[in-house]
């Protein structure tokens, strides 16, 4: 903040005047109070360590400090910067409770989003491996059954069943991933496999994650009757993608695994002193995304990092964290679906 010197002087003079006026007023007030108190009790009006002079001085300093602070305050509000175009507006999140119906609707919508993703993969010919194509067709049938089951449960609870995909998950997560995969080049098929593995894993985590939130044991069992099937899907995909490592190596083997990953730069022609990779059977998708049929001992609810798409000018491929649906992607009861 810039202060004009003249303005500062004026403020100091004003401050001095205010101080003197305050001292005079307090003087008169104190005299009046003291005069009304009997002679023997006047000492009780003041603190033992604070005589009358110091008391009034302290009050005057306080007033002066407040005056200075008030003078330093900006009097006028800042002007609004000019903005071109229309105000995009702000829509606050709905204040809806997260109940069983919301969770079931969200689960159903997630199933439809996965079905839609698989269909786009097939329609665009991102992968031609017949085994994998048959597999995701079978998985799509399963997901359709899951969605129907969730819709039926939603209706039974008195809610409106969701029969369409989750627009937030599809538009903000899946579509950007598919766009990147479309430009993957030679890694496209592997990227599709990694996407499918991640979607199935996150679907399983979604059902596992709602277990402690659902209000009845019966609903929890129903959720996991679907979630366990999603987990099987992920395990099958994990085994296809990375058949040589079904479980992660233990902590002791981790440095070796890291060296193998880093050694891919050798193939790219970049100077390095690291030894070349010896795990030639591991596919790019499994290396980039740490894909294992059984990645953890307990079901994890952590985000799943997914690296797909073309590399940028620095040779780095973008990574997206897939997360289970949450407050910003739930399908609340007042939302159309």
């Amino acid at each position: 903040m810039e202060l004009n010197r003249d303005e500062l002087r004026r403020q100091v003079r004003d401050l001095d005047r205010a101080q003197r006026a305050a001292e005079a007023d307090q003087h008169l007030l104190a005299d009046a109070i003291v005069e009304e108190v009997p002679e023997g009790q006047r000492g009780a009006l003041f603190l033992p360590s604070l005589d009358r002079r110091n008391f009034l001085r302290a009050g005057g300093i306080g007033v002066a400090a407040l005056t200075l602070l008030a003078a330093c305050r900006e009097a006028k509000p800042k002007e609004q910067l000019p903005i071109s175009g229309e105000n995009p507006g702000y829509k606050a999140l709905t204040d809806q409770p997260v109940n069983d119906v919301v969770l079931l609707r969200t689960a159903a919508s997630f199933e439809y989003s996965v079905i839609d993703a698989y269909q786009r993969v097939l329609d665009n010919g991102f992968i031609t491996d017949s085994v994998f194509v048959d597999l995701i067709k079978l998985f799509s049938e399963h997901h359709a059954a899951h969605a129907a089951a969730m819709a039926a449960a939603t209706t039974a609870l008195g809610g409106t069943a969701c029969t369409k995909l989750n627009p937030k998950i599809t538009s903000y997560v899946i579509e950007p991933l598919l766009l990147r995969i479309a430009n993957s080049g030679p890694d496209q098929a592997e990227d599709v496999k990694a996407l499918a593995f991640s979607l199935e894993s996150i679907a399983a985590a979604t059902y596992q994650g709602v277990v402690p939130v659902l209000t009845t044991p019966a609903l929890r069992a129903a959720a996991m009757s679907v979630g366990s099937v999603e987990a099987r899907h992920a395990a099958v995909l994990g085994m296809i993608i990375n058949p040589t490592e079904l479980v992660p190596a233990d902590a002791k083997a981790a440095p070796a695994a890291a060296a193998a990953t880093t050694s891919t730069t050798v193939d790219a022609g970049l100077p390095t002193t690291l030894p070349a990779s010896t795990t030639t059977t591991v596919t790019a998708a499994s290396v980039a995304n740490s894909i294992y049929a059984i990645p953890t001992a307990f079901g994890s609810l952590a985000p799943i990092p997914l690296t797909v798409g073309p590399a940028n000018e620095n040779g780095v491929r973008a990574t997206t964290n897939l997360e289970t649906p949450s407050l910003n992607s739930f399908l609340y009861e007042d939302e159309a679906c």
Partner: peptide, 9 residues
């Protein structure tokens, strides 16, 4: 649930 989902795998 966290056990069951992995035992399915």
């Amino acid at each position: 649930a966290s056990i069951q989902v992995v035992e399915a795998r």
